[in-house]
Structures are given as structure tokens and as C-alpha cells.
Amino acid sequence: MLQVGQPAPDFTLEGVDGKDFREVSLSDYRGRWVVLFFYPLDFTFVCPTEIVGFNERYPEFKKLGAEILGASVDSKFSHLAWISQELGELHYPLLSDITKEVARNYGILIEQQGVSLRGLYIVDPDGVLRYELVHDLNVGRSVDETLRVLGALQTGELCPIDWRQGIKTLGKG
């Protein structure tokens, strides 16, 4: 069972980066923070709000030294069509977990439906899972909260409830 504090399961997936297909491995991002999020399916209702929301805030993630990776069980061809028809230019890749193996390894695959729950993971520069959040299919995630937690993790200190950048931490743990 996947747990915070353990190495994040590595993977190599094909995806769409810009308008191009390419392979992406989690290990390619060693030395950087990674925000990895899974969404159920392309061409749905809640998913584009999240993908566009993370895209609009991409500069804030980059400022914190983090990369974003989106993934679903759709094909890379479906991703490309969705980006071209609806989403527009994305600043981060959408990856195809067509075999569902990565969603299964992260513990978020709904086997009966063949889709993943809305899982979000923050992986530190050493490849260690530092945060995981799983939502029901019907509820989108908060980009604000993801940025808040990423910033808190990067302090390496104890952060109280509702901690935000600029607020004093509780010091080293």
C-alpha cells in the first residue's frame, strides 16, 4: 500500500507535451518537486476545470521549483484531441495510463469502471512521496491548497493549520 514517506512508484508513460507525443518518466524529474495528478477521463465536466486551473497557475508552481504532470487512463490520441479541441495550450504534459498500471500502483484505480479517482501526489526532489490526496469523481481539487501544501513541505519545518507563505512556522520538528 502506498504511503507518504515512501518512494513514489516510478513510471514511464507516453503523453502529450505541447502538441508532441513523448515518453515521460517520474525519475526524469529527480532533483525537482513534482505535482502529479490523476483525473478520471478526457472530455468530461469536472476534469477540464482542474486541468485549466493548474495550467493557469503553472507559473506559481514553477516559482516554487515544481513540475506538474497530469494523467488519466485515456490514450495519448484522446489527450491530443481534447487539448486541440477544448483545452488549448498546456504548460505541462498529460500522460496516458492506458494500461491502468500506474493508477493501480498509486491505489486509485476503480477496477469496475476502469477509471482513476482524482488522486494528487506531491513528490520531493529525492523521489519520496510527501503528500497524497484522493477525491471522489464528482469533486474537483483546490489549486490553492496544493500550492499551500507544496510551500509548507518546502520549508522543511512544522507548519500550523492554515499556514501560508509569509506566516511563521513552528520551527524544526
Rank of each mutant, 00 (worst) to 15 (best):
P125N: 08
R118W: 01
L120H: 00
E67N: 12
R57K: 15
D42H: 11
L153W: 07
G107C: 06
Y39G: 06
V73D: 00
Y92H: 13
Y92K: 10
C159W: 05
G151M: 07
L90G: 08
I161K: 05
A66Q: 11
Y58V: 07
V46F: 02
W163L: 03
V35C: 03
R118L: 03
L153Y: 02
Y29K: 08
Q113S: 04
S96A: 15
D124S: 10
I98D: 10
G151A: 14
G53N: 13
L64D: 06
T155K: 08
V73M: 04
S96I: 03
S96H: 09
A103V: 05
R164E: 08
E56T: 10
L64Y: 10
I167P: 03
N105Q: 15
V134T: 09
E145R: 07
E50N: 11
L153T: 10
T49S: 04
V34Q: 04
L95E: 00
L120N: 01
H135S: 07
P160E: 07
L36N: 02
L117P: 01
F37P: 02
F38L: 04
I98G: 06
F43V: 03
A81I: 13
D162A: 14
G166A: 05
R130F: 06
V123K: 01
G70M: 14
G70H: 08
V134D: 02
I98Y: 10
F45M: 04
F45P: 01
F61K: 12
D144A: 15
K100Q: 12
E86T: 07
S116L: 01
T49I: 12
H79K: 02
Q165V: 14
G127A: 04
R148N: 07
K168F: 05
P48R: 14
L90N: 09
L137W: 10
Y131R: 03
A103L: 04
R104D: 11
P48V: 09
L129T: 00
V123L: 05
I51E: 03
F54N: 05
F38C: 03
G156Y: 06
Q165R: 12
R30S: 13
P48G: 09
R57M: 15
G140T: 03
Y92S: 06
K168S: 09
L158S: 15
